[in-house]
Simulated assay, not measured.
Amino acid sequence: MRYITGAVALGAALVLGTLATTAQAAAPAQPARSGGLYAPTELVLTVGQGESRATATVQRAVTLSCMPGARGSHPDPQAACTQLRAVAGDFNAVTATPSDRLCTKEWNPFVVTADGVWQGKRVSYSYTFANACAMNNDLDAVFAF
């Protein structure tokens, strides 16, 4: 009698375990907590004085998030996200915008950087301008902070 009771308990445990596993497998997948249907876009943008990312002294830094809406500590996140979307996240296109304004040819370098994720892809970008005038000429909304 003792063996029959043990066999029934073991059988019941196996059936319950199988049902629990089947219920978990049949449950619908939950959307990711990182913004649902949107690929994440979270960036840290900096402006520093120096010749390279490694040697520059950071003067300003802001955060920028573009998905699902524009937000962050950037002073105009909507305009910055709009500019980045227009060039498909190509930071070279942002920093290479020509200007008609004349600047001196002094070498007093400024570095802009962008690190983080743009539409789900890792981004690490830096660009060195000859001086502050050249930097302010060539930048639109993204690095204007």
Rank of each mutant, 00 (worst) to 15 (best):
D90R: 05
Q83K: 07
A93R: 15
L64C: 09
P98T: 07
T22P: 00
S34W: 10
V58Y: 07
A61N: 07
D90A: 03
V44R: 12
P75N: 11
A54Y: 11
T22E: 13
C81V: 08
A25T: 12
V94D: 01
T55D: 15
E42Q: 14
V87T: 14
P68L: 03
A20Q: 12
G69E: 14
T82N: 13
G35E: 02
A29C: 03
T57A: 13
A70Q: 05
A27Q: 08
A70R: 00
R85F: 15
Y38I: 00
M67D: 12
T95A: 08
G72P: 00
V58A: 11
H74V: 01
P77H: 06
R60Y: 12
T18N: 13
Q30E: 13
T95D: 05
R71S: 15
G36F: 02
V87R: 06
C103Q: 03
T41D: 00
G72Q: 00
D90K: 02
G36V: 03
C81L: 04
G36I: 01
A86I: 07
A26D: 12
R85W: 07
S99T: 13
V87P: 02
Q78V: 15
T104A: 12
V47F: 04
P98A: 06
G69T: 15
V62P: 01
A29D: 10
G48I: 08
P31L: 02
C81Y: 07
D100S: 14
P75H: 09
Q78K: 14
G69D: 13
S52Q: 10
V44C: 05
A23K: 06
T95M: 01
R85L: 15
T55Q: 13
P28L: 00
S34L: 09
V94H: 08
G50W: 00
A88G: 10
T22K: 14
T95F: 02
G50T: 03
Q24L: 14
A25S: 11
P28Q: 00
L84Y: 01
A25F: 07
N92M: 12
R85D: 14
T18M: 12
Q78A: 15
P28T: 00
P75S: 11
A61L: 04
G17F: 04
E51P: 04
C103F: 03
V44N: 14
A23Y: 08
E42S: 13
A54W: 08
L84H: 00
C66S: 09
P98W: 11
A39D: 14
T82C: 04
T41A: 05
Q83F: 02
G89D: 01
L64N: 00
A56V: 01
N92W: 12
L19W: 13
Q30G: 03
A26G: 03
P77V: 09
A93S: 14
L43C: 09
A39S: 14
